[in-house]
Every structure is written in structure tokens, then in C-alpha cells.
Measured scan of single mutants.
Amino acid sequence: EGLCAVCGDNAACQHYGVRTCEGCKGFFKRTVQKNAKYVCLANKNCPVDKRRRNRCQYCRFQKCLAVGMVKEVVRTD
């Protein structure tokens, strides 16, 4: 048992190249599959942790990419 590289929640295994929780795994997968574009309403440096991970989708997705999650391994079929 480890911690999610994105939000610090409990994470049992790796998803898309990085140890993440189920919440961040699902968020990343949905974002890539929908080709979603998010906008940060602040300064693009919002805190992303277990308690606040749902407040800014833009910053959460940027953190997913920054920690090494790989868009190309998300299935789109």
C-alpha cells in the first residue's frame, strides 16, 4: 500500500505509469477519453491533495501529467 502521486490518498497499484488512487485514475481516464479541456480560475497552481483534489480540474490534470501519467496508454475504444 502506497500513496497517490497526484493527491496523496491511498493507492494500491500503478495506473497509466504512476501509483495513483482510484479517484485520480478515473479522473485521468475520463479526461483523456473525452479530450476534456479545463480552465483554472486562479493562478494555475491550486493545491491538489486528498481533501481538495476536486476543486480545480485544470490543476489536477496538470499534476497528473507532471507526475508522469501517460495519455497514450488510456484506451479510447
Rank of each mutant, 00 (worst) to 15 (best):
C13I: 04
L65Y: 03
C46M: 00
F61D: 01
C13D: 10
K37D: 09
E22C: 07
V32A: 15
K25D: 11
E22N: 15
K44D: 08
D49L: 05
G17E: 07
M69C: 04
L65I: 04
Q14E: 07
D9R: 07
V73W: 07
C56Q: 01
A66F: 04
Q62C: 06
G26C: 06
F28Q: 02
K71W: 05
V48E: 04
V67S: 08
K37C: 06
Y58F: 13
R55P: 14
D77H: 04
R51A: 06
G26I: 03
G68A: 04
L41M: 12
R19K: 13
R55A: 06
L41A: 10
V74F: 06
N43V: 11
R51I: 03
R30G: 04
Y16F: 12
V70K: 05
M69W: 04
K34C: 10
Q14V: 14
G8M: 11
Y16Q: 12
K44R: 10
V74L: 09
K37T: 13
G26H: 14
K71E: 10
D49V: 03
G26D: 09
V32H: 05
F27L: 02
Q62T: 14
K63N: 02
N35A: 12
G26S: 05
L65E: 10
V70R: 11
R53C: 09
F61E: 03
E22K: 09
P47G: 08
V70L: 10
C13K: 14
G17M: 09
R55K: 15
R30M: 06
L3F: 10
A42I: 05
A42S: 13
C59L: 00
E22D: 13
L41H: 09
T76C: 14
N35D: 14
H15V: 12
V48A: 02
Y38V: 09
H15M: 13
K29E: 15
R30P: 00
C13F: 14
V70T: 15
D9N: 07
F27T: 00
N35C: 14
Y16N: 12
R75H: 03
V39M: 10
Y58S: 14
E72A: 07
G26V: 05
R19A: 12
F28R: 01
R19F: 14
C40S: 02
C46R: 00
N43T: 02
G17T: 08
A42T: 11
R52F: 08
V70W: 04
F61W: 09
V73S: 03
G8S: 15
L41W: 01
N35M: 06
V39Y: 03
D49R: 05
E72R: 11
R51C: 05
V67H: 08
R51W: 13
R30H: 15
R53D: 06
N43R: 11
K44T: 10
R51Y: 07
V74A: 08
V32T: 12
M69R: 01
C56W: 00
Y16A: 13
R53E: 10
Y16T: 07
T20A: 02
Q14G: 11
K44L: 08
G17L: 07
R53M: 04
R52D: 11
E22S: 05
D49G: 09
K34D: 15
Y58A: 12
M69F: 10
C46Q: 04
R52A: 12
D49N: 02
C13N: 02
R55F: 10
C64Q: 01
K34H: 15
K50W: 10
R19P: 12
V73T: 15
Q33K: 10
F28I: 04
C56V: 00
R75A: 11
R55Y: 12
C59V: 00
T76A: 14
E72T: 13
K71A: 12
V48R: 02
G68F: 02
L65K: 15
V39K: 15
R30W: 06
E22F: 08
C21W: 00
K71T: 05
F61I: 12
K71M: 03
R60A: 10
Y16S: 08
N54W: 11
H15K: 08
G68Q: 02
Q57F: 05
G68I: 02
C56D: 01
A42E: 15
Q62I: 04
N43Q: 04
V73I: 13
N45I: 09
R75S: 13
Q14L: 15
L65G: 04
K29D: 14
R19T: 10
N43M: 06
K37M: 14
R51T: 14
A5R: 10
V32F: 07
E22L: 09
R75G: 12
Q14H: 06
A42W: 03
